[in-house]
Design a protein around this nucleic acid. Structure first.
Lengths: 125, 125
DNA sequence: CCTTTGTTTCGTCAATTAGCGAAACATACA
DNA sequence: TGTATGTTTCGCTAATTGACGAAACAAAGG
């Protein structure tokens, strides 16, 4: 039961659920892109991704300085269908999807620059 | 997303997952029977069942002093299939199933008497 | 009524978890 | 080799959660 329970625990967090659903239609996402979508500290995102990876829901691929995550294949089919059916109409998920289009339209470099600027901005407060 | 997340949270606990799986093959179970299976305090079991009910995974029916819980229909089909497939071979679940046969073989009265005896036994330590 | 009994609610405590910043790591590039 | 940059690990804090016992509730039966 342990593995099944780990999957349930991995999904029992709103941010992690958003990531999984995002990956269901996006093939792969870089950590910095996920960070942008969730609006969390990189350290926090990294921690979430580790939990998802330990639950064997995602896998990662390094490319230079970037780490890209994707769903681990084979992804449990019933789980996939459940999330798909349950969250298709969710406002938050749709908003994530819309924002991801924006995020993906610029390359990771620009994205990370944008994040750095935001950080500076926060410090000025 | 809130409802979907509530379901994931409801399943993200070993004891609650055991209850759901037990109800997948047992139609309905009394609180005292679930208490016997999980070996937890009645108050704790009641709390778990409330969480499952708020997630709309179970419903209850009162009969005299007893409260029987069953899966709420319609139970999300993909979720049902996922649990079925993932936990069919689980040692713990099989052990629960075996023990439930025992529990169900005596009527609730005897069961609760047994629980009371165990409680007295604990006090004597 | 009053007692018994099964369940739930409440209050509390210990354990777990999500979040962050700082520091460590790792990789590219000057 | 040194610096910049993306990611992860570590240490800590605040919030959440699971567990229990005591007390409240609800239903049956003397």
């Amino acid at each position: 039961m342990e593995h099944t329970l780990n999957i349930a625990k991995a999904l029992a967090d709103g941010n992690r659920m958003r990531v999984i659903v995002a990956l269901m239609s996006r093939d792969e996402l870089c950590v910095c892109q996920i960070t942008e979508m969730l609006q969390l500290a990189p350290a926090t995102v990294s921690r979430h991704m580790t939990i998802l990876q330990n639950a064997r829901l995602v896998q990662n691929r390094k490319e230079g300085r970037w780490v890209f995550y994707r769903l681990l294949k084979p992804f449990p089919e019933p789980l996939y269908q459940w999330l798909q059916a349950s969250l298709a109409g969710s406002r938050e998920i749709q908003e994530d999807s819309r924002q991801l289009q924006e995020i993906l339209s610029c390359n990771p470099d620009d994205l990370c620059r944008r994040q750095k600027n935001r950080k500076k901005c926060h410090h000025s407060h």
